[in-house]
């Protein structure tokens, strides 16, 4: 495929897909609640509206707040560049899993500083909970990625997702995919952990952290989050797709198509899950995350057993 087509398809997916995913989640939820709901394009309009508003900043803030939104988005873009979340990418650098995990941490570091910059108790409590949640989720994500690396014998994500003979270890793909999916729910504060649709007192993590953001800052924060959601969903969708051994033999554009459909299906699944599941009490969250860790551990151990060198 020519490089221009590759570039344009990649840029389109990276810009269009994140809001679309969120739109699909919202639409699914609305349909399940017997509402018509906003169109799936609504997040685009919301984002557009945000860019036109005037920005309000707290007078307590120093510069780090605006820096944090920018660094957050750019780190997430770098991650979207690193992680082979769609099969067609203009250029795939060597994406080491540990670097990826620590880049996520970099994004979090700045988001946390930004949340605490205004001195608002909302932001700080959101940050404190985010930190706690992340502390629990990090090992799960790390182990899930390690299990994938074990079967590919390389820590490079590019190598992992182009590896082609998997008939014996489909269980690893399944477990790792599940683990990444559940991790994304916890990390991004979606339903069993936190309710993203309410405001302030009821939503404990993300909305509280973005309380002081407005206009374009809010735009950057929201887009960062959508992009992160899409990255996680795409990774887990790919894991699920690779259970089917024939996936690796398809042509790249067929793979691309399948992955994109997979991402949308995952988004619909998130919507269904959010309509069915109740929010967990905050103290029960560690227990929920412990199950994710269990899935990851199983995945690592199965991968170790599947690795021929055992």
């Amino acid at each position: 495929m020519s490089s221009i087509a590759t570039w344009s398809s990649y840029l389109l997916t990276v810009i269009i897909f994140p809001p679309l995913c969120l739109g699909v989640v919202r639409k699914t939820k609305a349909r399940l609640q017997n509402r018509v709901g906003p169109a799936v394009w609504q997040p685009f309009f919301d984002l557009h509206r945000l860019t036109k508003k005037r920005e309000t900043l707290s007078d307590t803030m120093c510069g780090v707040f605006r820096l944090s939104t920018v660094v957050g988005l750019s780190t997430t873009f770098a991650l979207a560049w690193f992680i082979p979340w769609v099969p067609i990418k203009p250029w795939s650098p060597h994406a080491d899993i540990f670097t990826v995990i620590y880049l996520f941490a970099l994004e979090r570091f700045f988001t946390l500083l930004g949340a605490m910059d205004s001195g608002s108790a909302f932001g700080a409590f959101g940050a404190s909970r985010d930190v706690t949640l992340n502390l629990l989720v990090e090992p799960a994500l790390c182990l899930a990625l390690v299990s994938l690396s074990i079967i590919a014998n390389s820590t490079d994500l590019g190598a992992i997702f182009s590896f082609s003979h998997f008939s014996t270890v489909s269980l690893v793909w399944f477990c790792a995919g599940t683990s990444i999916f559940l991790t994304s729910l916890a990390e991004l504060g979606r339903m069993p952990v936190d309710d993203p649709t309410t405001h302030l007192e009821l939503t404990m993590i993300h909305e509280a952290m973005t309380l002081e953001a407005s206009a374009r800052n809010l735009f950057l924060l929201e887009f960062t989050r959508m992009l992160k959601l899409t990255l996680f969903l795409a990774l887990s969708a790919q894991c699920y797709l690779r259970i089917w051994a024939g996936f690796a033999t398809l042509a790249p554009f067929q793979q691309e198509l399948l992955v994109l459909i997979g991402v949308l299906l995952m988004a619909i699944f998130v919507g269904i899950l959010e309509s069915l599941v109740v929010k967990l009490q905050w103290r029960k969250v560690p227990e929920f995350v412990a199950y994710i860790v269990t899935v990851s551990l199983i995945s690592v151990f199965v991968a170790m057993a599947g690795n021929t060198s055992l």
């Binding site: 560690p286 412990a290 860790v293 551990l297």
Partner: peptide, 18 residues
């Protein structure tokens, strides 16, 4: 021992039993 932790412990013992 909290339930999730005992589950993790058990998984590790599962591997060690190999």
């Amino acid at each position: 021992l909290p339930a999730p932790l005992s589950m993790h412990l058990c998984l590790i013992l599962f591997v060690l039993s190999f």
